[in-house]
Write a protein that binds this DNA or RNA. Structure first.
Lengths: 210, 210, 210, 210
DNA sequence: GATGAATGAGGATTCATTCAT
DNA sequence: AATGAATGAATCCTCATTCAT
């Protein structure tokens, strides 16, 4: 945003859609060019290489994935937790449009696939892995902060906020992962059910924990 | 095992190690040949194609991953759960050797990487996805069965066995996934801590749940 | 001609020369690249595959082979027949240059070899066979038409024009075929002698046939 | 026959059938092995190389093609000519079985295809070309001899026996060639019609020629 | 800003051939 | 006599990248 040309952004969006369509191992610049509706070589005006483009695209992905949360500290912590869960397990067209002008049709599938491919690639590329690491760190911190707020406000029990945040985050990641990589249709629902029970458990009166 | 030629098995093992070293997107038959110490073309005596080999190798991976559990029904359910957790989060050399004669040096890293790559590929290949789906189904059923045994024996509270099994399984998968894809050194430990607390929670006297 | 890129045409010409040099069974893209003086992969900018290129080249071959005959209906039928015979049995540099900028050195040998290879390949490829079939059909029709004209003008006896055309055409094809496939140096001359006698026979006064 | 092992002969027959099925450019030892029902490497016990086998097979082909004609000089020359024509344009199962124990199903198609492929290959291989040259020479001589006999017996006009033999032979070759290489269903019939008229013409009373 | 021609390295795969058994 | 494991060269083709326009 700002100085970056419109074309540069459109290339990232094309890369996103192409990745969701073909996967990392089978993603050619031709595929991206087709998604872009332009000659693939144009990309070298804006990026140093294919990997440079994809790294840049990862940053857009992160923005969609963690969302531009308002994080109004005065919000109801429980509602905030539910909203975060929902944004990750069920990303909305709107959410993607805040970052990309031309989102793919099936947002949930596309986001899951791109997540899986980018994370898998992070195994082999340090720059990617720094990014994935940072994303998980931010998300955990956001969730932990919300839990801490809940504890402070007396809404939640006095749990270990960091560990509970991890707990929720691990389940969220796995929900996204499993949607793309298995045929278990109900996995995401089950993840959601489990997270719900964790949130409910957080609210149990402090008396219960004694 | 048995009728299959030694070479065929050695090729699968080479493919496993090569995949752990290069990743799916960057895995060439040359890489596999190098790992095998033989000419890559030999592979076409035993497999129809690169993908056929990798699918066959996935089946070996599954055997290592879910393990040949003794599942003695008389075993302590809690111990069984801890053992399953440990086998998945911390696979042992021995475990791999039960399936492969020539395992890679760093088993934990290799297993995590191969898991991530094979699961990611399952997004694009139906035969792979059938396998990943089946693996998760078997593991959930194994865990659920253990929990049911625990409930029947009065060791565990009367929880929803299937949902609890899902809960544990999701965390296990994510533990393996995160080891390969992020720099969060302590993620696996945290997964283990969380699963431990779930197991401990299972043991809370039935009186507590009333 | 016209809109088609110069390179595309040059590739077809290189394919023609390479085919005349190596034969179908032993024709590699490397050979074509060498003949072209360029990297063989360039070919995929202009053609879908090796076979696509060769099919396209066959069309050029056909143009040379059947020639762009002026077919001036007022011409002497006997002269026309002799010209057709000559063009097929003894193709001239000029004739090839009307279609290709870079013809091979020995035109007669090259044309015979390419004919044999393309026709042989037509056994196995429907698209090729459609082309060879069409070529023979056109040539027969051209010859038959000339004969009919001769009959109408009273120059020729009232023979079965189609059958006589077949007769001449079969001999022509065999003349071309035999030059490439045997050591019989004089075969083509003998074919020509025979065809000459057929033409002479056509001119026998109608009185003779009564 | 005689000292040659049965296997050696069976390999030649397999090569014949495989060639009729795949064509020279696409004929692999695997194809021959499949046709043989044995491991392809067996062939190196009996032949020096693939080409050596095919050259040897060509010799069998020649025997079928020119036939083991009894050439009883007392036979009717016209009948002999018609028989030769028929044997080449319409080879019979019986004819092939005199040379091969396991002939292909559709003899006419197989013979035409093998002819075309072997002759085309003769363009590039001297040993093959010697053979093709010899075959055509023998056939011409056989036909010429028959014609001379006819002239001597007063059955035929005093034509140029060699040239007429060429004439008939060229048409025969082209008949076989065209069956494999074009879709012109009636070409062979037309060749036969033309040859018939040549034979009939031979019989015209000597008075006519004066 | 954008194109498309061109390259060369590398991809999977096939194949004729050899060799030990 | 026959097999099948193994090889390495060669095959077609794809791809990321560069460069002139």
């Amino acid at each position: 945003m700002g100085t970056t040309s419109g074309t540069e952004q459109r290339i990232r969006e094309a890369a996103f859609r192409a990745l969701a369509k073909h996967g990392y191992a089978d993603l050619s610049l031709t595929d991206i060019g087709e998604e872009l509706g332009q000659n693939p070589s144009i990309l070298y005006h804006y990026f140093d290489s294919k990997d440079d483009l994809l790294l840049s695209m990862l940053e857009d992905f992160v923005d969609i994935f963690i969302g531009k949360r308002s994080t109004e500290s005065d919000a109801d912590p429980e509602a905030t937790l539910r909203q975060t869960t929902d944004q990750i397990l069920h990303p909305k067209q709107m959410q993607v449009e805040a970052v990309m002008n031309t989102p793919p049709a099936d947002i949930e599938t596309a986001m899951s696939r791109v997540f899986v491919e980018l994370w898998a690639h992070a195994t082999w590329d340090d720059e990617f892995r720094n990014e994935t690491t940072q994303v998980e760190r931010s998300l955990r911190e956001m969730i932990a902060q919300t839990i801490r707020t809940g504890i402070d406000q007396g809404d939640f029990r006095q749990v270990d906020a960091e560990l509970t945040a991890d707990h929720i985050l691990f389940l969220l990641m796995q929900g996204v992962h499993t949607r793309a990589t298995t045929n278990q249709e109900t996995s995401v629902e089950r993840v959601q059910t489990i997270i719900d029970s964790i949130i409910v458990d957080l609210r149990r009166s402090n008396a219960d924990t004694s």
